[in-house]
Write a protein that binds this DNA or RNA. Structure first.
Lengths: 352, 352
DNA sequence: AGAGCGCGTGGGAGCGCTCCCAGCAGTGAT
DNA sequence: ATCACTGCTGGGAGCGCTCCCACGCGCTCT
């Protein structure tokens, strides 16, 4: 009713006004807003009515200031990785994060940590505890960022652990299983001289895919031929280069497992130019099940990662971590740092 | 030095502490932090030194509370548009936004406005003035969201105006020019019976592409054949359906301009199945210059939109708008609402 | 009947900042 | 010497919340 004093901002209702309206104290309204159990049903109803009538929405800034939490998490995007950014990976993950956040009051902040200046800013940002938690995607093995975050005691979840003993909580797809099933599939098709173009081996997940390739060969009793493995870097150009090298070295290869669809696209070009037909002469399998795979000619068999799901799980894990902390920030000694691994799935198309 | 009182949060330095260290008052430090000109050089230097020594970072929540601004803008993502989300459009735009924001203190918030519940939440969010401005992407003609935002007086920029007289500031690519140059290119190749599969015509940009197609025909003195235009919906399935209808109706067509690459991919399938070779029998041009275009067989000629640039321009425009406002929010009467249009570019490949 | 307990509750004391109003020199005009 | 006036500066008064202490009330337990 009575417009408060000088009526500064043109009038969003405040806690105080709601309290007056409901005939209770500020503290009580706060308790209702925050779902404290120690409010009588009658009072709660009265407050809720007042909130509805006034269209009250809590002021986040004030809450953040008083409670020393932000109700926001950050998704840190290593932007120079144009590759990462351009691929559906990113948007799918974002969708997962969005889904997980939908039932929450949490806000999502996007922070780009491309160049050094941006990383500097990020460091400050985190140091100032301006987010409750951090989601890290696609971090390189030698990136110091995760350790910095860990040191600051900020809850964080990383997608794609940097190594087998990643200290941070992590969510990953089963790269080993993916590489293994792709290779096993080729073996099942009767292929025996199966080449492999790896990803960037400074990415742990890429190593795991290669490990999976080896596992499948071993399981089938096929002796590994070092000459059939050629390093790539996830790029199309890398795929071309690697494929050319492989053809030169082992012209009798009858299948290729590429560590990404883009790599497979590069390999396909070289195979075509060399007059090899796909899949008759050479079967081809990619990784990621991206748009490229579906639209390639012939459509590319590929390993699908549950990326959206990964985003969801990461977010859930992070929310759990942030919730666990003491009201007045103190990182509990023995929080478990779960290493979640989600299954992949082979999508069979005409290239194999 | 002296740890402040009970030393609550484990100790980020505050303005007060910086002031003490520099031997000045709180107000002066605030002035320095905010770049006020009315501070003597000596004082400024002293304060800056103290800031550096203490590693002071301003507390955003406190600032937001006191100054009634948030230093954050929101990118509103209409999530149910899976199409939109999955395409590079989104990530490219995000990159543009990120670039523009890099030199700023502004933070980027991602808000999903998929279902009704999320939109509800968004409305509340905006009503509470929790962001200084809004970036809107890919909004449908009948979406009430922009009008709501305009009513609240929140600065906003929309990508892809909803109509020719969009009241909000907008940034768009030259859809008319794109459609025109794609069609003109086909004409230049000697094609005369050029079919067109439209996008969703409730999207203004799609209409404009079709207008461009008509313009190019008119300019070449080719009489338009209504039977050569078939509505699509940007999807692959829509492309297939439309292409089938076109082939049935005008089997002698010699070119197709599709309103999106995905649509073109659908069309290509049907053309192949009908035994038409590309580009010999039928030339094909798409729109978006997506990964699909590059990897199609044959690689697809397509119209490239400067999406990253659009993101950048949108953000700049928005920042300008937010800066223009009076310190104590009052939307100036006659802010101009610029309608920026960025040029497209035809990327020629083997499909035409 | 009195002490003790626990549940609901009100409201003071901040959180760290910005805004703004005085106040204090120093300068030039009267 | 007095009086504006200007250029910097200090610090009070909030911003709207959360936290927490203290208080009152109705019970149960001796």
């Amino acid at each position: 009713m009575a417009v408060h004093g000088r009526g500064r901002g043109g009038g969003r209702p405040t806690l105080e006004e709601v309290a007056a309206r409901a005939g209770v104290g500020r503290g009580t309204v706060s308790r209702v807003i925050n779902g404290s159990p120690s409010v009588s049903d009658a009072t709660r109803a009265a407050v809720e009515a007042a909130v509805a009538e006034l269209g009250y929405v809590p002021n986040t800034a004030a809450r953040a200031l008083a409670a020393n939490r932000t109700d926001a998490i950050a998704l840190v995007v290593p932007e120079p990785e144009t590759r990462f950014f351009a691929e559906p990976y990113f948007s799918e993950m974002l969708r997962g994060v969005g889904t997980a956040l939908a039932d929450t009051e949490m806000q999502l902040l996007l922070i780009f940590a491309g160049n050094d200046r941006e990383r500097q800013r990020l460091a400050q940002y985190l140091a100032a505890h301006r987010v409750d938690g951090v989601l890290l995607v696609s971090v390189h093995a030698d990136d110091p960022l995760p350790d910095m975050i860990a040191e600051l005691g900020i809850p964080a979840v990383i997608s794609g652990p940097r190594s087998a003993d990643e200290p941070l909580a992590s969510v990953d797809s089963d790269n080993h299983g993916g590489g293994r099933s792709a290779t096993a599939h080729l073996i099942g098709q009767g292929r025996r001289r199966i080449a492999h173009i790896t990803g960037r081996l400074d990415v742990y997940g890429a190593q795991r895919r290669t490990d999976g390739y080896r596992t499948a060969l071993a399981e089938a009793g096929i002796e590994e031929d070092q000459g059939l493995v050629e390093p790539g870097d996830f790029s199309e150009e890398g795929g071309r280069r690697a494929m050319a090298a492989l053809l030169e070295r082992r012209p009798d290869l009858d299948a290729v497992f590429a560590a990404s669809d883009v790599t497979a696209a590069g390999a396909r070009q070289v195979l075509r130019e060399a007059g090899r037909s796909i899949p008759d002469d050479v079967a081809l399998v990619g990784y990621d099940d991206s748009a490229i795979a579906r639209h390639m000619d012939p459509p590319l068999t590929s390993v699908r990662q549950p990326i959206t799901e990964m985003g969801r799980v990461m977010t859930d894990l992070l929310l759990e971590q942030t919730a666990v902390r003491e009201p007045r920030r103190r990182v509990p000694a023995g929080v478990r740092r779960p290493q979640t691994v989600l299954p992949t799935q082979l999508v069979r198309r005409q290239s194999s």
